[in-house]
Amino acid sequence: MTTPDNWQKSSFSGFGDGNDCVELATTPDTIHLRESDTPATHLTTTPTPLAQLLHYIKTGAV
């Protein structure tokens, strides 16, 4: 699996270069998420399951 090069820091992580944030990168049809404290470990998903997870988190509805 190819690891993306262009990681973006979450806007909810505050300012500076601290290691307290979630980062996101995309490749064609794939979304990669990682914690800046452990950049070698990341989750890989596609848009549909991630959208479903975020919907559940926001609403508590399945």
Rank of each mutant, 00 (worst) to 15 (best):
P4V: 08
I57W: 00
D29Y: 11
N19S: 08
P49I: 05
D37A: 13
P49Y: 04
G60D: 07
L53D: 01
T26I: 14
I57R: 03
T44A: 13
N19W: 00
P39W: 02
L54Y: 01
S13E: 12
T59H: 00
P28V: 05
D29I: 04
Y56C: 05
T27K: 12
R34N: 06
C21V: 07
G60L: 01
W7Y: 07
M1N: 05
D37F: 04
N19F: 05
G16I: 12
G16W: 12
H32M: 15
S11N: 13
V22P: 08
D5A: 12
T30H: 14
V62N: 14
N6S: 14
E35K: 07
I57D: 03
S36L: 07
D17K: 11
P49M: 14
C21K: 02
G18Q: 13
E35W: 11
G16L: 14
A51M: 01
S10Q: 02
P39Q: 01
G60M: 01
G60S: 08
R34A: 05
T45D: 14
D20F: 03
I57F: 02
T44I: 14
T41Y: 10
Q52G: 09
L54K: 02
H42V: 02
F12V: 01
P47D: 05
L53E: 09
L50W: 14
A51K: 04
H42R: 13
T48G: 09
A61P: 00
Q8I: 11
N6L: 02
K58A: 13
S36V: 05
A25E: 09
T44V: 15
H42E: 01
A25M: 10
L53M: 14
D29C: 04
S13V: 06
F12C: 04
P4A: 03
A40H: 06
Q52H: 11
E23G: 06
I31Y: 11
N6Q: 11
F15P: 05
Y56P: 03
T48D: 14
R34F: 14
A61E: 13
T26M: 09
T26S: 15
I57S: 00
S13I: 01
D37L: 12
L33H: 08
T26Q: 13
D37E: 11
G60A: 10
S10H: 08
D37K: 15
T38Y: 01
C21Y: 12
D29G: 11
H32T: 15
P28R: 10
L50T: 04
H42C: 04
G14A: 04
T48V: 15
L43E: 04
G60P: 00
T38G: 03
L50P: 01
S13Y: 08
L33C: 04
T27V: 10
Q52M: 01
T27I: 14
G60W: 03
P28T: 12
H42S: 08
G60V: 01
T59M: 00
